[in-house]
Design a protein around this nucleic acid. Structure first.
Length: 385
DNA sequence: TCTGGGGTCCTAGGACCC
DNA sequence: TCTGGGGTCCTAGGACCC
């Protein structure tokens, strides 16, 4: 029996929420994004897209293309709240609901269709419900697999609904540009075009032997997808594997003390997130990017899995020292991972010190939860008045 | 044009063990 | 004296996605 997978993708999500909250923006080109210097576009309204503005574009370029655009800062908390509301509207349709990001989800309706309903009718109902309950538009794709449903939802934005009937997957995909295939980014697109592959249909017709070894395991996977075979499952709850924080400076930094201070603040944030989600990290990765956009990472395994700032920061700082990094720095970041549930914490004679720090950290977390993040901070991070 | 911040997965070499 | 082969873990980098 063919599966019935629905992909839902909110239309210009961040920008649409800004228009919702500030109705005077309706009909205007709206860009949600970071600062004009070193910022990028997070979302653009369709009016802004008409000028060639799209997400991930450097802000300077976006404003050159559309000087009259209204630029709004990113309000992550607001989008997150809206996302949760939308998921509660999707949940009644199936227990097999996989949230992919703040504005995207998959539903597997194969065994959850009400009598007399079809994938298309449920998708249409979802679109209507979301518009009524939130005032926001979304596009949907219905197909026998996730990747194909996603490509379908992408085809007629905004407020589209595209159904790919079972058996018509390959025909649906064939005319699309090769770069539209999920898993084909800039690098793979370049290599495929060099082989004369310009559309998904070109790839589907390519003899497997012509792919050779240059695409690794993804080669056969891309070929299968191009031919319409798409059987990855909808997985409701995925285990997080890492938690990280990074920041780009307004201007490059060379002072070691500044790098360390930022690293401590980022690590503090990561540790708090670990505790909030009941995870222990087995390792730490430091990330640095220089003024020429060259990025390096350095990672290490912790002596004991941990969720306290002191242990994570000691490791991150040691990595910074060992990296012998003296370049002008534009970005610094720290990631904790791989993760394990805190319930797996081993009794350890040497972990008593950690245990005290965890109790202090837990008390601080509680104060932040009650009075806000600014209520308490480390002496080393306190702003000098 | 001058490139954010949050992630996942794959590759490849070397260490280490049996 | 010079040498196998498999398995697993660790680390660094890169491709990709939203």
């Amino acid at each position: 029996m063919p599966r019935i997978i629905v992909h839902i993708d909110m239309d210009a999500f961040f920008a649409s929420i800004e228009v919702l909250d500030y109705p005077e923006l309706r009909g205007k080109p709206v860009i949600v994004g970071g600062p004009a210097v070193r910022g990028v576009v997070s979302a653009a309204s369709y009016e802004a897209r008409a000028f060639g503005v799209h997400s991930a574009m450097p802000m300077g370029e976006a404003l050159r293309r559309c000087p009259q655009a209204v630029v709004m800062p990113v309000r992550g908390g607001r989008y997150h709240d809206m996302s949760r509301h939308i998921m509660t509207l999707l949940a009644p349709h199936t227990p097999l609901l996989e949230q992919m990001s703040v504005d995207e989800a998959y539903l597997d309706l194969t065994h959850w269709l009400p009598a007399g309903a079809t994938g298309a009718s449920v998708a249409a109902e979802i679109q209507t419900t979301i518009a009524r309950e939130t005032g926001l538009g979304c596009s949907l794709g219905v197909a026998t697999g996730k990747a194909i449903a996603k490509m379908a939802s992408d085809l007629r934005k905004p407020r589209g609904l595209v159904v790919v009937p079972p058996g018509e997957e390959a025909a649906f995909l064939a005319p699309l540009e090769i770069g539209k295939l999920r898993g084909v980014g800039a690098a793979t697109e370049r290599k495929l075009r060099a082989l004369g592959v310009h559309t998904i249909g070109d790839l589907a017709r390519l003899p497997a032997t012509r792919l050779g070894g240059q695409f690794g395991v993804v080669g056969p996977e891309l070929l299968a997808l191009a031919q319409g075979r798409d059987d990855s499952p909808v997985v409701p709850e995925r285990q997080a594997k890492s938690i990280g924080r990074e920041t780009t400076y307004w201007t490059d930094v060379t002072e070691r003390a500044v790098l360390e201070r930022t690293l401590l603040a980022l690590t503090d944030d990561v540790a708090e997130s670990l505790r909030r989600h009941d995870f222990l990290a087995r390792g730490v990765t430091l990330k640095l990017r220089d003024d020429a956009f060259r990025t390096i990472t350095r990672s290490t395994t912790l002596p004991e899995p941990s969720d306290v700032t002191e242990a994570l920061y000691a490791a991150a700082r040691a990595l910074l020292t060992a990296a012998r990094w003296h370049r002008p720095t534009r970005l610094i970041g720290v990631t904790a991972g791989p993760l394990q549930p805190a319930a797996d914490r081993q009794f350890n004679l040497f972990a008593e010190d950690d245990d005290k720090k965890r109790k202090v950290a837990g008390a601080i977390d509680a104060i932040k939860a009650r009075f806000g993040n600014d209520a308490i901070t480390r002496a080393r991070l306190a702003k000098k008045e």
